Simulated assay, not measured.
Amino acid sequence: MSDFLLDPEVIFLNHGSFGACPKTVFEEYQRWQRELERQPVRFLQRELPGLLADARRQVASYLGANANEVVFVANPTFAANTIARSLPLGPDDEVLISDHEYGACRFAFEHAAQQKGFRVVQQAIALPVESPEAIADAFWQGVTEKTKLIFLSHITSATALELPVAQICQRAREAGILTMIDGAHAPGQIDVDLCKLGADFYTATCHKWMCAPKGSGIFYAREDRQHLVEPLVVGWGWGAEKTFHRENEFIEHHEWLGTYDPSAFLTVPAAITWQNQVVTKEVRQRSRDLVHSAVHLAAQIDGIERVHPDSFYYQMGLIDVTAKCVDAEALKSRLYEKYRIEIPVIRWQDRIFIRVSAHAYTTQGDIQALIQALQEQLSPQNS
């Protein structure tokens, strides 16, 4: 915990929502902010293009992509809106998603569907899952001759499930269907190689599991698909009188949106360095073991069930409290107010899950505190 700025009085088991930034990375973030304010004109007009290019090269290397295929965005919601509004989808077209997708990104496609007339199809992936192949087969049942785009999470937010996106991207390419993967929870939690993954488009946060400052994310577009992408915000990078001339139009169109604070983007290389030095395979495995411990111990409480086999989740896991008939918001509030445990209680379909996250700062004592709290709060007299 000493490496982070987290409140030591809070048991923080919710890294998955917004992440947590290490002190050294946050100091670098503040250094960039001070550099910006020292001489804004010099920084924004003369230095920023080169600084962003260097940061892009480093994050692209970390994710197994080419530097000219990646731009920084505030978050995956921004990238999802960009694709939903860019692609030439009409009344005869369908966008296929799963019923595990993050609400804000799903809303982006549903809103665009209202404007353009295409249809958003949600394909169910039932829980518990049996194998990656079974997930891919279940999802593929939603594909029709009208399917033009597949939008799918790499690791789902509500259900903490790794989906077999490489398999699905390969099937989609063979069928002539575009793919966009929401990797909000993937980089930093699992290894990501975008060239091998095979998606046409990919978006991710850097502020979650990569532990960069809030408001830093990436949007990847394969070079041969970039002509399909229009900027969500038209600014100086789009017109003939460009403020900066960069490597290609994809970067020009999407990188300069007007005056903004780029400090979070420029800090991503420091977060990558911190990841490489601190978040070793051993640290990731320890975090995963702590999550497994939480899931296994909770399942020993009468009425609490497991959701996924261990192989399907990493540093986030689910505790199914549906049978306890609890009020999700009330339970979340009690866990925080009485026990100072910050953890999400999620409604998904007709089920209620507690999603536990672990990172370098998590201890077995944190897990034991959660289990004790659940034993008390979910006892017959409280449930």
Rank of each mutant, 00 (worst) to 15 (best):
S61I: 07
Y62C: 04
Y62M: 12
L63D: 05
A65W: 01
N66M: 03
N68L: 03
N68D: 08
E69P: 02
V70P: 00
V71K: 03
F72S: 04
V73L: 06
V73Y: 10
A74G: 13
N75E: 14
N75I: 06
P76Q: 07
F78E: 09
A79I: 11
A79F: 01
A80D: 07
N81H: 06
N81Y: 13
A84H: 03
R85E: 09
R85H: 14
L87F: 03
L87R: 02
P88A: 15
L89K: 11
L89Q: 15
G90D: 09
P91Q: 05
P91I: 10
D92E: 00
D92H: 02
D93M: 06
D93P: 01
L96K: 07
L96F: 01
S98G: 14
S98E: 08
D99R: 02
E101R: 02
Y102V: 08
G103P: 14
A104F: 06
A104M: 14
C105M: 08
C105P: 07
C105R: 05
F107S: 11
A108R: 11
H111Q: 14
A112D: 13
A113N: 01
Q114E: 12
Q114F: 11
Q114W: 03
Q115D: 12
K116T: 04
K116H: 10
K116F: 12
G117I: 03
G117R: 09
F118G: 00
R119G: 02
V120N: 11
V120C: 15
V121H: 08
V121D: 15
Q122P: 06
Q122R: 13
Q122E: 12
Q123R: 13
A124L: 13
A126G: 05
L127V: 12
S131G: 10
P132F: 03
P132W: 12
P132A: 06
E133L: 03
E133R: 04
E133P: 07
A134I: 14
A134E: 08
I135S: 04
I135Q: 15
A136S: 14
D137G: 15
D137E: 12
D137R: 14
F139Q: 14
F139E: 08
Q141F: 05
G142Y: 12
G142C: 13
E145H: 06
E145Q: 10
T147S: 01
T147R: 07
T147M: 01
L149W: 00
I150S: 11
I150D: 00
I150W: 00
F151T: 04
F151I: 15
S153Q: 14
S153Y: 01
S153L: 01
H154F: 13
H154L: 05
H154W: 10
I155W: 14
I155V: 07
I155Q: 02
T156V: 13
S157P: 10
S157L: 07
A158D: 09
A160V: 11
A160R: 11
A160H: 09
E162S: 14
L163W: 15
P164G: 09
P164E: 00
V165Y: 00
A166Q: 10
A166I: 12
C169H: 06
Q170V: 09
Q170C: 00
Q170S: 06
R171C: 07
R171N: 11
R173P: 00
A175E: 15
A175P: 04
